[in-house]
Amino acid sequence: MILSRLVSMFLRFGEFVSAAVVLGVTSYFLYEQHHHDYDGPKAREIYTIIIAALSLVSSLVLLIPFTFTFLHYPWDLILSMAWFASFGLLVDFVDDNLTCSGPFHWGGLANGSYCSKWKADEAFAFISACFWLVSFLLGAYVFHRRTAEGNRRGTFRRTYV
């Protein structure tokens, strides 16, 4: 049980960091678009900001190492799916609209260009989705293992009142 709590705290911290990075980079893009009257993928960015903000708050609340944090594993799956959708939207925009050498070409990203920032946003969205997916798997495992242990001990008996 101690190991699962430590792994959970590591995953929650990773979720927090990933969400903070995506929130910062995507907010920068929205600021630049507003400041320079540039029409960009605002709907995709607003969706990503909403998911990042929800993830930021959720990861902070669920970072507290109590057993009840494992009971919220369906929320982890929902956020994982939302992050994968965000990643797909970001990749789709790069593939269709930017000249960044393709969505999965990672060479020359150290120059601080628009493409390198966009790809960093993509990467951290994918990393966050993976963290949330592993949190879901861990939470489901711990929850169902504890339920099975409780059934063996007789602490979760059905009552026919």
Rank of each mutant, 00 (worst) to 15 (best):
F29L: 09
G112Y: 12
R5E: 05
F87K: 00
I49M: 14
V134S: 10
A43R: 05
V57Y: 15
D39M: 14
L56E: 15
F70D: 10
H36Y: 15
N151D: 10
S80V: 01
A123M: 11
A20R: 00
H72Y: 08
F70M: 03
A120P: 01
T159W: 15
L77D: 07
Y28P: 01
D96A: 08
L56S: 14
F124W: 15
S55E: 04
H36I: 00
I50D: 14
Y73G: 08
V21Q: 11
D37S: 09
V91P: 04
A19T: 04
F68C: 06
A53Y: 15
R158L: 11
A20C: 02
A19E: 10
S4L: 05
Y114H: 11
F66G: 07
L54Q: 07
W106K: 01
F156R: 08
V25P: 00
V25E: 02
T69W: 11
D39F: 15
S4M: 06
G40D: 10
S27K: 11
Y31G: 01
S128W: 07
L79D: 04
S86A: 15
L30T: 03
L30N: 14
Y31F: 15
L23G: 02
F29G: 03
S8T: 01
S27A: 14
L71W: 13
S8E: 01
S8I: 01
F10G: 02
F16M: 05
V22E: 07
H72K: 02
F84Q: 02
S116A: 09
V17A: 15
A110K: 10
A52S: 15
W83I: 00
V57L: 14
C130I: 04
L62Q: 03
L60S: 12
G102H: 14
G139M: 04
Y28D: 04
S18W: 06
S4G: 08
H144W: 12
S18E: 09
D76C: 08
A82E: 05
L98E: 10
H144K: 08
G88H: 11
F16L: 12
R5D: 06
S101E: 12
I50L: 14
G108R: 08
R44C: 09
S128G: 13
F16H: 09
G154N: 09
I127F: 15
G108H: 07
A53M: 10
L54D: 04
K117F: 09
L54K: 05
A53Q: 07
L98K: 06
E32P: 03
F87L: 06
T67M: 11
F156N: 11
S55P: 03
G40N: 12
G112P: 05
V142C: 03
R158C: 05
S59P: 05
E32M: 08
Y31A: 04
S113G: 14
D76W: 07
L11V: 01
S4D: 07
P103N: 05
F68P: 02
C115I: 02
L56H: 10
V161R: 11
V91W: 15
P103Y: 13
L137S: 07
I51P: 00
R12P: 03
H34S: 12
T69D: 13
I2N: 08
R5L: 01
